[in-house]
Design a protein around this nucleic acid. Structure first.
Lengths: 142, 142
DNA sequence: TTCGTTGCAAAAGGTTTGCATACCA
DNA sequence: TGGTATGCAAACCTTTTGCAACGAA
């Protein structure tokens, strides 16, 4: 979305072992994960972090534009570290969760045009693509 | 409003006064409404309908593809009757909720191309556009 | 009469908050 | 030391479900 400054989030961001752990675990994820999954992973690793802290950290990252967020059908939020600057769009497998970055220039251009044509200001867009990846589809086509 | 030639999703769809009321109230909405708002509206009108029934009716309409659904930032679902067949995309004002149908052929084509190029099956897409409408922006630019 | 539908209450599920404690800078 | 971060428990919100009563066909 437009207008999010990617630089520095909270004025004072302390480096605690919990935050480092959350960031580390998140970085290790290639696909989208929920706060609960992240918390479970950390716990299994032996890291002591509260679920609340995971939520708070993810929210801070989200506000800072450092992660991409999609919503499950249930409303649950799934997070993924943002590879580079600017936002990305993904195609996520509904079966296994595999995510794949897709080229979304066409959508970006379209969104810009809509913004210009409608008179709306501060137009932001969310695009979510889901499907069944080749592997999953091979196992159970329908 | 007219409800006779409605469609036929659930194998057996009984016409109860509650369902007629929900459909009527929903039809009267030009913009997106939540289940709670719909329920409140009906209650104010003097119609006795349970919140549960509103949810169930909306879910049935959603499954039958008779309403468009968007998600609030909070995760809350907002519904709007679908004008015609085929799904639509909207540009919604974050201040007043005003919604506007936008031409989304470009996005449809792009989604189809992505589906074809990635090997994913049953690709579905969700596109949500939000902004500040001209009126609201005139009142408080930022 | 039959069986889908309703509504209340309670559960579920995810996310946020209050508040006392712990700890980084 | 000062003020931020943490974590537990409880609160919140929206949505779903169990179940007995109801009512359309």
């Amino acid at each position: 979305m437009r207008g999010s400054s990617v630089g520095e989030w909270p004025p004072a961001w302390r480096s605690t072992h919990q935050r480092v752990a959350v960031l580390g675990a998140l970085s290790g994820c290639r696909d989208f994960v929920s706060a609960r999954e992240l918390h479970a992973t950390l716990t299994l690793e032996g890291t002591t972090v509260g679920l609340t802290t995971v939520y708070r950290t993810l929210r801070a990252l989200e506000q800072g534009g450092r992660v991409d967020v999609v919503r499950e059908r249930t409303g649950e939020r799934l997070y993924r570290p943002r590879p580079t600057d600017g936002h990305r769009h993904y195609l996520v497998c509904r079966r296994c969760g595999l995510s794949r970055t897709v080229d979304a220039d066409a959508v970006e251009r379209w969104a810009d045009n809509v913004a210009a044509a409608t008179g709306f200001a501060e137009v932001e867009h969310t695009v979510e693509l889901t499907g069944i990846c080749e592997q999953c589809h091979a196992v159970t086509p329908s």
